[in-house]
Design a binder for these strands. Structure first.
Lengths: 185, 185
DNA sequence: TTCTGACAGTACGCTAGCGTATGGAGCATG
DNA sequence: CATGCTCCATACGCTAGCGTACTGTCAGAA
């Protein structure tokens, strides 16, 4: 990796966000991690803010569009797609860590992206639930509820892993149950 | 406020946590906000870490013990207490903001406190649900679920307020419904 | 009134991180 | 081979914030 691209930096920045929030996006430490120096960074970006922006864009892409596309491509019944969706998001620890940091951020620019991401995810959830036979209103209500439950779960898993596992047993059976109760008319 | 106490500093630090996370606990800016200087701070505390610690202790007290005591003192049926509990936590924006920041923090010391707080809250929820007639196992499962839903809700309310309100209508009726479904055997 | 101790202000050095300027290294192309 | 372009390293100045040392102030005890 003798020569870096802007995407390399954005990826590393997203990594930093996952482990320490936007505040952890610091040029010099990331440069060290990439085995480079600031010289490289300031070639690809104008300022630190642009790196944060790029990382957010990357996150937005990966955590919504990519996930949705992957689920849609796999196909299957709406219920099967729901189940696959839950499986994906629970596994992708890297993505959920970024989620946690970003949802807690107070910066307006971050919140704008987060809101867009949340909206898109909820829209997709609602569309699946409509396909399952729910009315648009009910589908939307359930989608919002499911999404907020999802947020709470990753939060709790992150801050105190034992608490959840001890009362829920297997995560995959838990996801089964959640999907089941969401789909039930 | 010509003379400050250690508690004044801790309170201001908790405020800083609410609005910017633990990273926002910076001695000099807080000194300015208190109309003082570092000279005061380093009289009351040995180092910045001690201030963070004090703020966390304050949060732990207020967001668990105080809330629980207040609900218990008001009395009423377990269901009424549950309802009162939800009303309290949804209103206390200051507390929930701190919650959001702290649940997202990666520092082991913070996570230790957060885990203790979560455990205590879940324990209290479970005890109320047992009083409502649930078996211990069921009460605990529901308590964990309710708590994680709570976390998700404050998260969503914080990062994108409109998303929740638009699909849920009145927050107080929402709380009614949640309590109702929790209590139902 | 004087003295003492609790409390606060001021001045200083130190580190981390941002941003800039400048000087290469290496490759491509004439 | 010379030239120029792309990419990176190094060195520098600047700010925010931590922690320390010393100096001041004021209330109450003696």
């Amino acid at each position: 990796m003798s020569r870096l691209s802007g995407d390399d930096w954005a990826l590393a920045a997203l990594d930093a966000i996952s482990s320490g929030g936007v505040a952890a996006v610091a040029v010099e430490p990331i440069a060290v991690r990439l085995g480079a120096t600031k010289g490289s960074f300031y070639w690809h970006f104008k300022a630190r803010g642009d790196l944060v922006e790029a990382a957010l864009a990357l996150w937005e892409q990966r955590s919504t569009l990519d996930v949705i596309a992957s689920v849609e491509q796999a196909g299957g019944s709406p219920k099967a797609r729901l189940r696959r969706l839950f499986g994906l998001v629970f596994d992708a620890a890297a993505l959920t860590h970024a989620d946690i940091s970003l949802h807690a951020d107070a910066d307006p620019a971050v919140r704008e992206v987060v809101t867009r991401v949340s909206r898109r995810r909820i829209d997709y959830l609602a569309s699946l639930l409509r396909e399952c036979g729910h009315t648009p209103r009910a589908a939307r209500r359930r989608a919002v509820f499911a999404y907020s439950a999802f947020l709470g779960n990753i939060q709790l898993m992150n801050s105190s892993p034992n608490l959840l596992e001890s009362s829920v047993g297997s995560l995959s059976r838990y996801a089964d149950a959640v999907v089941e109760s969401l789909v039930r008319i």
